[in-house]
Nucleic acid binder design. Structure first.
Lengths: 213, 213
DNA sequence: TCGAATTAGTGAATAATTTCACGACATTTT
DNA sequence: AAAATGTCGTGAAATTATTCACTAATTCGA
């Protein structure tokens, strides 16, 4: 719910990762796991993992480790895995299509409800079970959806963003290179594929071997 | 080139972003820019920007700001924009195709030279000017390429990784959810689309309005 | 049952990053 | 030419994040 706050942001960013790992362990039938094992598998320092978990209380048992099922159940609640968050996607290009085909609902509390595109040829298609509407219908189709994935050409980014905000969207996962401008109450996370690639190359050249970025 | 080190990693991660912004300003014909203007456009605190730039020396002028052309030229050298880094891509699904169609060579020092896939139907195609080969030919085709983009199904991730490392790859941009294991000298950057979406939703729920993540 | 081994939780130290706030200098205005 | 304004560069403070290293609890093996 609101903010039981004071979980560090760095920790919050790792939670979905922890969740998925625990889920995998559970599927594999593992009953217990230690911070050391998690550390090896996820490449995160074991002290960091223990510290992260400790923000939620004493979840493990000394000399034993963590009970996978218990921990998983705990994270499920913490991450609100029980209620599904509806999401829309704007821009059904290759990247958008990748998202539509990706079955998020498995292991995930999000579900892409519908997609929009400006290309009439795409309208009416159903991709990964998700219908594609024309962008002109955005305002009339949208109801109570607060999260949007933005995979449109960079030139359209700000314009579409303004319309999304107008429709009540308060969270945007932005894959365009544009640093979009939004009101205070709207959260934007940027993922810039070109920057990521360039960043990797820079790190390879200037930070020879060892630590993980 | 090795390490003129001591540029903080956080700064290094922002460099490609700075570069692209300056490039845009240059294209728009702007001659000067202040840290305040950059701050507004990129949503990064102006003091952080000045601090970042200062690691490279005194690049600006008091009371004036920064000369766009000079700064751009400086970053071009710093980011080795002049030499092109060849890259290969493994896995020509929707996400992989998005990369192939993305024209990285524009504004970028990287170029995807070839792609590989296990599906014979895709072999021989040319997507975004990049030829698709069969994954079996990986070892014989690869020569002197040190960077790979991994957009394969999660089940293939570790196996392909091992082969890439064997071929001399030292940097991998991993889009699979697998936390792949590599030797010490290989750098891996993970981008996990499901985690990013889930993370956005978590932040929306637990960190009400204001700061950017 | 006992001793050795394991492992969580955490105070304290360290490291990394961001932000404040101000002096110095350049530009612009009058 | 002087005053007002703008803006960088940076020491210092604040904040955030990671890691060390130890204690106490538990498990495991014989």
């Amino acid at each position: 719910m609101g903010n039981q706050h004071k979980i560090p942001q760095a920790t919050a960013k790792r939670l979905p990762l922890y969740y998925r790992f625990l889920n995998n362990l559970h599927i594999q039938g593992k009953a217990r796991v230690s911070s050391k094992q998690l550390s090896d598998a996820m490449k995160i320092d074991s002290a960091t993992i223990r510290r992260d978990f400790s923000y939620f209380g004493a979840l493990g048992k000394k000399g034993y480790g963590y009970n996978v099922e218990y921990l998983l159940g705990f994270f499920r609640k913490t991450l609100d895995q029980d209620e599904n968050t509806p999401v829309i996607l704007i821009g059904v290009g290759n990247l958008g299509t990748a998202f539509l085909n990706y079955n998020f609902t498995k292991n995930n509390n999000t579900k892409i409800e519908m997609a929009f595109d400006a290309d009439h040829a795409k309208v009416g298609e159903i991709i990964g079970n998700i219908p594609v509407h024309h962008i002109d219908e955005l305002e009339e189709m949208m109801e109570n959806i607060s999260v949007a994935i933005l995979t449109v050409p960079v030139t359209e980014a700000q314009g579409i963003t303004d319309r999304l905000v107008e429709c009540g969207v308060t969270g945007i996962l932005n894959f365009t290179p544009a640093r979009i401008t939004v009101p205070e109450h709207v959260r934007v996370h940027h993922i810039d594929l070109a920057v990521e690639l360039q960043s990797l190359v820079y790190f390879m050249k200037h930070y020879p071997l060892d630590d993980e970025g």
